[in-house]
Design a protein around this nucleic acid. Structure first.
Lengths: 135, 135
DNA sequence: CTGGGTGCAAAGTATTTGCATGAAC
DNA sequence: GTTCATGCAAATACTTTGCACCCAG
């Protein structure tokens, strides 16, 4: 079972209701941008401040259990770090899906032409999701 | 030979010295962020305004001959559109290189597990470039 | 109790807009 | 001559910072 308090403790962050809520939201929704996070949290914490969201996101990114995903044509979203995966972004509804794809083939072909030493890779597909194809 | 005036005309943009310079800079340097563009253009046009840069970049992106590349941990850069390619970003010196890699293998494996209809893909490798490996 | 988090307000930074002037066509 | 680009200043958007107060450990 997923437990945000334990996660926060593991990364030496004090467990506050706001932080728990941020992590829970991200766990529930997969990816969110700052504004969506803010809007959702306002329901539970009518006086939460954007500054709190920014400070916490930054802290979590620094502790490396949150990841910023920069998506073409849109605002960045944040996600909890898990196994490496790629992203599908629907250009029609904006939905973002995770997908497991083996990207090591790319690195092999990269090795053949360059001596660049890869540390990480980021793959984003833009297109039309299943739902939007039926409209 | 590359001719920025012709390019601008093809896309129905008036040919002004500032625009020519923007396109030429991008052609010469491959990728640049807004600030670098601004700094470089200031040498030729001491009174050029950031607003001019923004307006022109946006116009060129809309006409689809300029592309914004969103790179993890850094500012976006802009590049003239050419054949599809991937990017190598050096985490040490920040240099960005283009590389031709066939990404169609990824799409085949995507097809097997999802009915997402891909329009375009974006692949960015972060790592250490050849130069920085020898330091 | 102590350190650090929160919310507010203010400051910074980034980007866009309105407008008068001037250049492109 | 008409259309549209430029540069400036102001406006807006986005993000960070400083500080007083308060909560987690």
């Amino acid at each position: 079972m997923f437990n945000s308090s334990i996660l926060l403790k593991e990364y030496n962050l004090k467990v506050t209701p706001q932080r728990v809520a941020i992590v829970d939201e991200l766990y529930k929704n997969g990816h969110m941008n700052v504004d969506d996070l803010y809007k959702n949290l306002l329901e539970k914490f009518p006086s939460i401040s954007l500054a709190t969201i920014y400070k916490n996101i930054n802290a979590m990114v620094e502790k490396i259990f949150l990841n910023e995903v920069k998506i073409p044509e849109t605002k960045s979203v944040y996600e909890l770090i898990k196994e490496e995966h790629s992203h599908l972004v629907c250009s029609s509804c904006g939905k973002i899906e995770d997908i497991m794809i083996d990207t090591s083939v790319l690195q092999s072909s990269l090795l053949k032409q360059s001596s660049f030493k890869v540390q990480s890779s980021e793959v984003i597909f833009t297109g039309v999701c299943e739902n939007c194809q039926n409209c």
